[in-house]
Each structure stands twice: as structure tokens, then as C-alpha cells.
Amino acid sequence: MNTLIVSPSPHVHGKDNTRRLMGDVIIALLPAVLVSIWFFGLSAIHLVCVSVLACVVFEYLIQKFLLKGKSTVGDLSAVVTGVLLALNLPVCSPWWLIVIGALVAIGIAKMTFGGLGQNLFNPALVARVVLLVSFPVLMTGTAFHAPETGYLFGNGDFASAALDATSGATPLGFVKEQLAKGVAMEEIMANPGLSYTQLLFANMGGSAGEFSAVVLILGFIYLLCRRVIKPWISLSILLTVFVFAGALYLGDSSKYLDPVFHVLNGGLLLGAFFMATDYVTSPMTTKGQVIFGIGIGVITVLIRTFGAYPEGVSFAILIMNSTVPLLNKFQPKRFAKEAQKK
């Protein structure tokens, strides 16, 4: 007989482990990555590879030489951060920009706090915002044009045509610009690059991951089916944005964008499905999650409509990230309270 193993109950464990959950997130992001590659070819591959590699290498080095702990690369969380970072950067980002992003994401936003599970803010988003503030030109507008060498393969023609249609800026940036010029909303929306079909299947402007709403929704459904995430955060964000933007639109449709456009645009789906639902930086209880989602939705629309930036999702999520410790104070509903003494 073997030497008996003794432990307190339970004696079995479920199938879930950190690596499997992270693996599922990567699988869910794959369609978005593939679509990106389909359109932009080598540039997209370059972006994703550099980003993932840099994130993994930074995590490995920091864990080994600074934190002096067991390597945590195996849990795949660095890979997820890498892919998310890539999807948050313009396709033609130079390699050094990506590496700086990875250093900020892993080095500052994650490992400084003690590694996986300890960070307060979503690493990929911190990196995106740092880059956005530090390199505004590279991160927006003109950077979406094809590099001088052209796309090495992929359907570049289609991409350029769409890019031209939106003057190289993101759709939201374009709309904001035009509104500032005093162009009426109806005129702006007549632009062929802004049609809903375009948005659903291949919205050209923006970061690699804002590309196509359909593939993001596919990934979200996969995560739900695998029970990796619960839908509350994502749904409450989308619903809030829709309702809030809808109210503004009903108020004055010549000045405000219609809600469907809001929902489908500017990385809201990417943010709602993959960034806001990040385990570490989102609340634990359903109640907290719904409040978290509503907060993100409101802040997003506020920034988009009244703020200086055309995009608000990243900031909204980061702002709400900081409220998570507070939202975690919401205790879940108890099974039953103490009986009242008669």
C-alpha cells in the first residue's frame, strides 16, 4: 500500500486553474487578432508578437531578478496582457513604442504591486494611457495610415480605402473634429466609412482590437460559454452607454451621436468584454460588478461627449478600477439572516 495522503476535505478539485482561464481568454481574443492579421498582414503579426514577447520577457526578468520568486510566466497572464496591449495599439506602432508599453504594463502596473492578483489597475490599459499621453501623435490620427513600405500582405487596399474615408482618424475622433468645425451630425453620418455594416465587420480606424465588432462579440460568447466570466459587467456597461447616449441623442440629435454608434465604436466592445472584465481589477460580487459597469458607462459617455478626448473607455475603466476595493465592501447576499427574536 502507498503511504497514505491525508488532508482536510475537499479531496478533489474542479477543472479550473489559472492557466486554463488565461488560456481561454487568449482563445477568445484570437478572432480579433486573426481579423487584424487578415487586414494588415505582417504589421499586425509584428505588433502582436513583439507585444507578447516583451510582456513575457519583462515578467520573467522582474520575477527572477527583482522579486526573486518562482517564475510565474507559466500562468499565461503575461501573454494575455501582451495580446490586450497589442489590440490597444495602432497597427503600425514602431517596435520601441510597443516595448515601452510592455514595460509600463508589466513593470509598473503589475509587478510593482506584487504580480498577478495584486495590481489595482488593468496593466494593458495603464500602458495604453501612458502611451496615449506620451506619444499622442503616434497613438492617434495619422499613425493609422499605411507605413511607407506598404502592407506586406493582407488586404491593404480595402484598408486604405476605408482609412481615406475617415481621414485617417478614428471614427469618434473624426466625428468630434467635424462637430467642432460646425458640420451638422447628419452630414457627418452620411460618410460611407461610418456605416453600421462597416462598424460591425471592419471599422478601419482605431487600434488593432477595435477592428470588428463581430469578432469581439464571438470572443465574448466563448468566454461566457466556458464560464470564464459572468456577463454582468459587460452588459451593464453597454446598457448604460446605450441608455445615457440615447437620452442625449433624443434630446438633440443634431449635436449628439446616436447610441448604436456609441456602442459599436471606439473600443467600447473591447473594453467592455475584455478589459473591464479582468478578474483582478473588477469587483467580486454581482452588485459591485453592476455598479462598476454603470460607472464605466457613464464616465465613457461623459468623456466622449463633453471631454477633450474622443475616446473615453480606457480612462473610464481605469477610474472605476480605483473604486474596486470600495465596491468589494459590498457583501454578497447572505443565505439567510439571523432569526428575529420575538
Partner: peptide
């Protein structure tokens, strides 16, 4: 139970996924 079925794996960092909160039948954290 065999060792493969029951031996516990090494503990790693809590990723705050909240799975324990949703699994608890008594509504605890």
C-alpha cells in the same frame, strides 16, 4: 482515490476571480 485525483497542486496568487464567492452556497466571501 489515486494520487493524480487527489494530490493538491501548489498554491498560487489569488487572481480575485470571485469564483469562490459565486460558488459559496451560504453567500460568504
Amino acid at each position: 482515490l489515486t494520487e493524480a485525483q487527489t494530490k493538491r497542486k501548489a498554491e498560487s496568487n489569488c487572481i480575485r476571480c470571485g469564483k469562490c464567492v459565486s460558488a459559496c452556497p451560504m453567500g460568504l466571501e
